[in-house]
Amino acid sequence: MLDGMDAETARKSWLSLLAKADEGHVAELLDAIEGVPSFTWLRPPEIGSVMVRGRVGGSGEPFNLGEMTVTRCSLKIPSGEIGHGYVQGRNKDDARAAALTDALMQTAKADDLRNHVLAPLQQQATRQKTARAAKAAATKVDFFTLVRGED
């Protein structure tokens, strides 16, 4: 079992991954898992916004940049674990799937989910990020200096 700090870091990392997943992806992966329990809502999915902040000059005092949409929910599975889902956008089913994954990650099914939900999500995120970074890299300027002609 992980101790407090490691457990927090691990949970932070999977919740962050779930929040940014493509629409419908978590639910699709979770559907393929066997023995996903029923649950009761502690807070049914709710669409809202958060105010995104920036910093003056990139590093100075905070300022309000504008809002983004977020959907959140909380649920409880029969074995007692509570899952929280926070996802970008307005998809209530994505929030449900994220919260259910969060709850199950605290149970004996954690390994199963790590391999079959979180790992594919991470691969997908890395693939997308790398593809865009590779296209950006191809547009990097290689300066070369021409031999000056006057001497």
Partner: peptide, 23 residues
């Protein structure tokens, strides 16, 4: 539309130094 949304809070200031730059 924005005015109809409940606001859940404010984020930490984004760190543009960590931006995955496309340009």
């Amino acid at each position: 539309y924005r005015t109809t949304l409940p606001r859940f809070g404010a984020t930490a200031p984004v760190d543009t130094g960590t931006m995955a730059c496309e340009r």
